[in-house]
Nucleic acid binder design. Structure first.
Lengths: 209, 209, 209, 209
DNA sequence: TGATAACCGAGACGGTACGTCCTGTCTTGAG
DNA sequence: CTCAAGACAGGACGTACCGTCTCGGTTATCA
């Protein structure tokens, strides 16, 4: 009892897909999530509405894929061509505090980049309400990035820079989540100073030593 | 030539307001934020649409007030009747870790209470996208609660349980934001164990002492 | 178990109704029945689609009412104002043949009037396929006109110009239906000569006397 | 540089053509003209849409050919096999009234046959609106049948049963068109009595002799 | 103690977008 | 080349809500 017989993905138009990604991202950036409609995306992409409905189940779904694609493209642009794409990882200079601060500063830059802001916010908002979407968002985008912190913290445990009884998956939240919340809910300003402070507090604790 | 001649709030129907709050909260809980429409709220409340548009500017606005009202009602129910409502504050037993853990455990309970979950999520989602709404949400609901932590941490600084150079407004985020993010973005499970761990990590730091 | 609760016709917008009639008739005349869409009518009338769907059940329904209204307007324009609208009737000069020929010549004029042609054709076509619509079309428009012939033929029977055993309702079809079919199905040209001939044949028969 | 390079009819699939005829007729009978779509016909016939568009220009076109084919098949079924198919003609027993009544009774039977009703109505409706289609419909189907009446009336003129100054092409409409209109526009019931009466009135006239 | 001005319920209105269906064209792969 | 299959751009469908408006009907002051 299949649902309408699934479309044949081998015959999918690559051109349309690209046009839809571009239209979706630009419309969300210009008009906001609510005002970016499926009809609007289709019109700007020069595509029939059905072509969107054929391949995606909702506006959020389109935007999620468009955003994942955007990330991928950005990553490929950075990668040295003709070289195997080594795994991304947080640099390990031996100075944990410095390494974390560097990565967080880069994150600050990205969060403030207007190209990324509108679609990310839109996805985050949709995700808060739509559990299925979040699941995919977290699995494909968020968790992989958080695992990079897990790796760095584990390596720090081996060198003794972090206590061995610490759970790295929880530990990373001490400096990542505050930044995320400030950005998402606008509960406070975001800056290099702020993230540096977070790292210091998290590493050395609030209590006197 | 006034734009609309503002409505006369002294003649406002209290019964309608209550009915609208109830209808809004129950509809959001049952159907979700997107599917809870103004028309639906008006119909369930037995109220004309204009009565909603007269007093509120958007669905998010209605829901925000309804939620604030819900919080107030819950607070009044707890308060001892016939006694002046003393200021809410985090208890100070002298044991900072224990006090924080207790408060966070209570928060966990509330986050998992189905009566609160749907509307809070809905508001959070709307807030991510609508800056104006967030401002009010943060100012009226979130920040006052966070200030309770600020007070408790300041008091801890006086007793020497927290280093004096620590900024309490940032410090509290170390354990509050991780919990908030896990709930909002469903990046992980929520439990007493989890919040206890957050407090321990935050107070003593990740680095060995 | 009412269907969605019927709309309140006392609050209906007369302006919208008129605009819809005008738009429907002009669009059908310009573009033809198939290409005159509900969306197009709504747009030209400056009206929301729902306002059409609220009061009519289909494009054919709109057009039927618009056409009935057109007929009424035309009739009122002819009527002498300030005088009670006497019943329309086929003139009775005593010369049956002449009277019938005159009326049919007037009908020929109307059938060839481009203002009436497009909507009439459209209605006729829709009616062939949609029984419910035809019923109303016949009852409100066609049959009343045919009854005028019945009256004239009965009066002719009294004066002896028509045999008394003739059924007038059937008799009138001898000259009315051929004209109708030629027009509807374009099976032949329409002219005064043609209708005059029909009357002569019908009155005196094909067989020699 | 031909417009489309016309399809090579020698390579046409006979099986597909038959399947399309069957699907078209059955769909129109079941669902009506409007709801019988090209996609639906193609699907039921197990045929690609292009195969329909390659050989026909519109739904009406398909249906017209399907109907012509149906007529042919019915005629062949009646014809005595192994004998050359003589020209169809209205029998000439010498009694004009009886001959006409017989043919019209047969027509009544056909009009009431449910197998023919839906497609004929559909074609008639399409024809009212689409002039090009009507032209073909009239030329291929209607006029040839009417010419049979012309022949019979001419023969009657030779025997003196019909006045010599009568135009047979017009005369036949006196009894054929009323029947056609009653059927098309459902302006009245159809029966043997009715058609018999039509013939009598037409032959002997309405006026007393 | 009416007059009169507001709120109120109801819901029609001009619109926008939805998600579905179909059109007529184009493309792919099998025969 | 035809054919079955079906993706594609386009456009109309009929529905659901939006936010505005207009209509009686109830209050609830003020004259």
């Amino acid at each position: 009892m299949a649902k309408k017989t699934a479309p044949d993905s081998t015959r999918r138009s690559e051109k349309s897909r690209r046009a839809i990604y571009d239209a979706a991202l630009s419309l969300v950036s210009e008009a906001g999530y609510q005002k970016a409609t499926i009809e609007g995306i289709a019109a700007r992409a020069g595509v029939g509405k059905q072509t969107i409905y054929r391949w995606w189940s909702s506006k959020a779904d389109v935007l999620l894929e468009a955003f994942l694609d955007l990330q991928e493209q950005a990553a490929e642009a950075v990668a040295v061509p003709g070289q195997e794409p080594e795994e991304y990882a947080i640099p390990d200079t031996g100075d944990l505090a410095a390494d974390l601060k560097n990565v967080l500063r880069a994150t600050v830059d990205e969060l403030l980049d207007p190209k990324f802001e509108a679609p990310s916010r839109a996805l985050a908002a949709a995700g808060v309400v739509d559990a299925r979407l979040t699941e995919e968002f977290v699995a494909k985008l968020l968790e992989p990035q958080l695992q990079l912190y897990v790796q760095r913290l584990k390596s720090a445990q081996e060198t003794g820079a972090v206590r061995p009884d610490i759970d790295p998956r929880i530990a990373l939240e001490l400096f990542v989540s505050p930044l995320a919340q400030r950005w998402l809910q606008r509960t406070g300003p975001i800056s290099y100073d702020y993230t540096d402070t977070l790292v210091d507090y998290a590493l050395h604790g609030l209590a006197p030593r």
